[in-house]
Design a binder for these strands. Structure first.
Lengths: 154, 154
DNA sequence: CGTGAAACCAACATCTA
DNA sequence: TAGATGTTGGTTTCACG
């Protein structure tokens, strides 16, 4: 459970979060460990949840999702029930890519994808305007993405 | 280059963005296509950049990055040079996971990771306080992550 | 459908903190 | 003593032709 991550682990993880298909042989080369040892470490890193999952990153543009929006949402009432209700709604909405519950003026910050403005407007209707518990929301349109990904500093 | 994505592609991509290690056989089953066809499609999806890359998602907590911050940054002057300079700085900073250039009050919105408050404070010094061109910045601390990932709606 | 490469797994001896 | 390592070898899986 408690996983002490040493230098070799770091090397392995650094490779994998750039390319999940890195061969064991390549990891053997860069760590200096044996193949068996690398395999054991990999297994542990996965089962301990250090490696959460391995996924393909798709290009949103190519998938027709040409626009990205960052939305700050302020709720009317912040009871636990209301928060959960909102979360559940978000969970089911594929156009919301990320959702953070935060301190400060806003309650939630969302990152949304949509094919165009019209689609986004419809999304805001579904999620916010029709939702009594949303006091207000504020949208920033993304002009360009300087950095994406979910890389963790090693 | 221009990639027309049909229903079978969608099925394939949907699987892969949940699990990059999905076997070709599994894709054959869910698409009804032949093994060869799935392989061809896969190859094209990759070379056309629809599949940008395949990566391991690490658990930030397990890596000692227990805190997440969302930072709105407003620049002093928005000349192209200034924007690029800022971008370059961000690019090199591993603790900045994502960076978006946006419309609205803020110029940039960042998502940052740090082990603790102290480390984040140091980050703000490096990136913002010491930077003449940053007029102001505003931080939201993430209390919980309702939704993470970079999944694209299919 | 067959083939070869790679990943997987188990067993055992060694080393050391 | 408990845990991690390297070696070996056998088995399985899977992509690819």
């Amino acid at each position: 459970m408690k996983h002490k991550i040493d230098e070799s682990d770091r090397i392995i993880l650094d490779h994998l979060q750039n390319d999940a298909a890195t061969s064991i042989h390549a990891l053997v080369d860069s760590t200096g460990l044996s193949s068996a040892s690398v395999q054991r470490r990999l297994k542990r890193l996965r089962s301990d949840g250090v490696i959460d999952r391995e996924v393909a990153i798709l290009d949103p543009e190519a998938m027709g999702q040409k626009m990205t929006f960052i939305v700050m949402v302020e709720l009317e009432r912040e009871s636990l029930d209301q928060l959960d209700a909102f979360r559940r709604k978000i969970e089911k909405e594929p156009h919301v890519q990320q959702c953070y519950y935060v301190t400060g003026d806003a309650d939630f910050i969302l990152i949304c994808l949509a094919p165009d403005m019209k689609a986004f407007e419809e999304l805001t209707h579904r999620l916010f305007f029709k939702n009594q518990n949303v006091r207000r929301f504020h949208t920033n349109v993304v002009m360009s993405k300087t950095k994406t990904g979910l890389s963790v500093p090693i």
